[in-house]
Amino acid sequence: MLFYDRQDAGQKLAEKLIEYKNNPKVIIVGLPRGGVIIGHEISQVLKTPLDIVVPRKIGAPDNPELAIGAITEKGQGIFNEHIIQAYNISLDYIDQETVKEQQEARRRLKIYRGNKKPLDLENKIVIIVDDGIATGSTMQAAIASIKNKRPRKIIVAVPVLAQDSIPKIEEIVDELIYLKAPPLFMAVGNFYDLFAQVEDQEVINIIKKHSS
């Protein structure tokens, strides 16, 4: 295993981002739920604000863990045409799941953020973080959402990612920072000793802490 848990991974990733410490232009944006844990650890080290973006994975029929795409609460969608064609997935299914997951993204964002207003990302250096990247669809949707906020620079930082996701991310951001890209990548959780599901309340508590 590469990391003990998400806290460990976040602390190690923060070391790679230390040049951004105490920079008032930097904002960390985490993907719930695991990415918020990573983001919290980084923000503690860098002394920077933390916010969230909530893309939702769209899973394949009968295999929800296989991402065929992702959607944000605003409707920015990313789809993997190769997987869609390989599994002969119908447009009706895609449309139905897109509507469902967009609604879920809105619901979760409201729960997580509460009355907290989103941070102003215009002309900021935004570091988008997650606990890992497999297919890249969810991160690509997050990037599309952040780009609409007109930041000065977008950096994606993750502890671990699949090698074939590297070019997908690098071509749409200013910088990609990662600790490991193993040649054999099955699932993000395989690279952690402890990879328990993060509960909504933990995310809510972290966001509240950064609102005070």
Rank of each mutant, 00 (worst) to 15 (best):
I84S: 05
Q85I: 06
N88C: 08
N88H: 14
N88E: 15
I89M: 05
S90Y: 11
L91A: 13
I94L: 06
D95N: 15
D95P: 04
Q96D: 13
E97H: 09
E97Q: 15
E97T: 06
T98E: 11
T98Q: 10
Q103R: 14
Q103T: 14
E104G: 14
E104T: 12
A105N: 13
A105Y: 09
R106D: 12
R107W: 10
L109T: 15
K110E: 15
I111C: 08
I111A: 11
R113E: 12
R113Y: 10
G114C: 03
G114E: 07
N115S: 13
K116H: 11
K116A: 11
D120H: 10
L121P: 09
L121I: 06
I125F: 04
I125R: 08
V126R: 00
V126Q: 02
I128N: 05
D131R: 08
G132S: 02
I133F: 00
I133Y: 03
A134F: 03
A134I: 00
G136A: 05
G136V: 03
A141S: 06
A142P: 10
A142V: 10
A142D: 01
I143F: 01
A144M: 05
A144P: 03
S145V: 02
I146W: 01
K147P: 10
N148V: 08
N148R: 12
N148Y: 08
K149A: 14
K149Y: 07
K149L: 13
R150H: 14
P151E: 05
I154F: 04
I154H: 05
I154D: 02
I155F: 07
V156S: 00
V156R: 01
V156D: 00
P159H: 04
V160I: 08
L161E: 00
A162T: 03
Q163F: 07
Q163C: 04
Q163N: 09
D164N: 14
